[in-house]
Design a protein around this nucleic acid. Structure first.
Lengths: 338, 338
DNA sequence: CCTCATCGTCGAACCGGTTCGAAAGCCGTG
DNA sequence: CACGGCTTTCGAACCGGTTCGACGATGAGG
């Protein structure tokens, strides 16, 4: 690879002149600029990222931390990765993806060695052990997922409470009086996934307010447990006229399960859920649902992070943003027959 | 952040001594080593990656290039990403993930600016436009997927031809005489996904050799087209006793489709397929299948790449490796009733 | 006792950019 | 004609590491 010195020699100017021609931070005469550009093309010069980062103290790279939990629905993660990567690129950043099972160590490694200008944390839990490491480094960060203590952190997440209220309201308006709620698996709660209880509590609270009967359950994440659990739950509540599913694995398996049981949607049962548009298309899910909008969250986290990086170091108070959910009606609900 | 100079001052030695204590490339007395270690701990020093990369001309980062094709089964990609990332970390490398829709540009950007020491290309097609860019940079690379021209490149892929032969052999041994073959969608062929015709041609060739009737089709990637296409195909061949499916989206939807048609596996129809173990577990697919072994391919690509990076520049001829497929019998086949 | 090898450490150069201060050349003006 | 100001370019310092050659101290061998 050629260096800026090679270009300078070729164009008959000094290294600094080439640098200024490239950055535009000082005026360069048209004549020398064209000579420099010619030299750059001829030599195929591209500035060395390491050297530039060393001097400017900016790497133009963002860290993306993800953790894969065994026994969890993996495709969901990808929903976030792609929008984050695309948004970063649009802002001029590349993505250093860290999947170290030891999250805090991964953060320290890329932050303390200044490999990245900022960090996006995916799937943040209530007491996420990564947050201590994150606060110890002085790097800007944006979280997707709500921790218990948000002090000093930029956080973005779907408003799961509002999502639950929207769905319960929708069923209540249609006249349903007894509904079943299937949440994510219980081990997600244990891990501290706050979206589980934020959705769950709001749904229960909202149902109580309307005087609706609601039967909350934690679902499963793998077949054949999903099928068995759904069967048992539906058997236990023959009078329920509506089903709220907040569980990707369950909703993906639901069409087959209901078909087998001979249950028609929405004639026999109204079904509402919460999943992303992509996910729904992937599995052609025919359910009225609130969109989880992973792309909105991913992009928003990146823009917030970039703002934090560029606008002075600590300018502005930390931002906790809850994205308002949107209902997409796919016709999987109607008035209860009874 | 503190620098190596701060550590040196704190420990009362020169910068070079600290560097040697860290790298172990020269002997350091126990006495000063402990003093240096104390200083490092006290100051929380971590070497700056950019500075180190600048001098050593090694970034300890691998580029991972992926492209998302609309209308394609996205989860498949993740199967490779995680093993690649884990294998890289075990070798001491981090992963710079590039999802630029313009592949060649992404390669040039990270390679010419020396952000990475080597590149892993995912989902390589027969005439992949990224290969020219790759050859232009002098960076080592490893491809997953078989291009038409492998000159000078390290390539690894599943032996799809052998996979097809294994499956056809399996059915032939059981006594099947008429089988249906569902391949990936036709637009994958147009894009140059060589694994389509490598599997397809081998299956047809093998069937012909045994005198079996085989009906090859290109499948769909999205519902409800999948369902319609499978229905039409099965209707067209009522005498076929076995089904070979080389199509993730189709195989995922197949249990529901067959149940609806009232077709029992394996009593009415023997089914074999090709998918990864994870994928099968995710969707609890009950089919005898050849494993696509994305983890093996991903890890193998990384180890080959690292070998190429560390062992001198161009030591050793390029390697094209076909991973032998393995059949997992899940009991979805039996002797045809007729 | 002198020489020589070895050990442990230091200073300086270097990697490839960026950026600051200054200098050279040119113009218009008093 | 001297002077000030503007434009364009250069040289040098710097970012934070690594590495080479050298140097003083120590100990062994003749």
């Amino acid at each position: 690879m050629s260096t800026i010195g090679d270009v300078a020699k070729q164009a008959g100017v000094s290294r600094s002149t080439v640098s200024y021609a490239l950055s535009g931070k000082r005026a360069i005469s048209d004549e020398t600029r064209t000579r420099i550009e010619a030299a750059i093309n001829e030599l195929g010069f591209t500035p060395n990222a390491g050297a530039r980062a060393l001097k400017t103290a900016q790497t133009m790279v963002l860290g993306l931390l993800l953790q894969f939990h065994p026994d969890e629905f993996a495709p969901a993660m990808l929903q976030y990765v792609l929008p984050v990567s695309e948004a970063a690129r649009e802002e001029g950043y590349d993505i250093l993806m860290v999947t170290d099972p030891d999250g805090p160590r991964g953060i320290r490694r890329i932050a303390d060695s200044d490999m990245v200008d900022g960090i996006v944390l995916l799937d943040v839990t209530a007491q996420d052990p990564r947050l201590d490491a994150l606060r110890a480094t002085r790097k800007p960060a944006a979280l997707i997922g709500l921790p218990r203590d948000t002090a000093g952190l930029d956080v973005i997440d779907l408003d799961f409470g509002e999502a639950a209220r929207i769905l319960v309201d929708h069923l209540q308006e249609l006249g349903h009086r007894e509904i079943v709620l299937i949440c994510p698996p219980h081990h997600v709660v244990e891990r501290g996934g706050s979206y589980v209880w934020r959705f769950r509590d709001s749904a229960i609270e909202r149902a109580a307010r309307y005087g609706l009967q609601i039967h909350p359950y934690y679902g499963e994440s793998r077949q054949p447990a999903i099928r068995h659990s759904v069967d048992a739950i539906l058997d236990a509540h023959p009078k329920a006229t509506a089903l709220v599913v907040h569980n990707d694995a369950t909703i993906a398996a639901l069409p087959a399960i209901l078909r087998e049981r001979g249950v028609d949607v929405p004639t026999d049962l109204s079904v509402v859920s919460l999943y992303s548009r992509d996910f729904g298309e992937e599995f052609s899910l025919p359910f009225t649902a609130v969109e989880s909008a992973a792309d909105v969250l991913g992009r928003s986290a990146v823009t917030q992070l970039v703002r934090r990086i560029t606008r002075s170091p600590d300018a502005g108070a930390p931002v906790v943003r809850f994205v308002p959910p949107v209902l997409t009606d796919r016709g999987s609900t109607q008035h209860p027959r009874r």
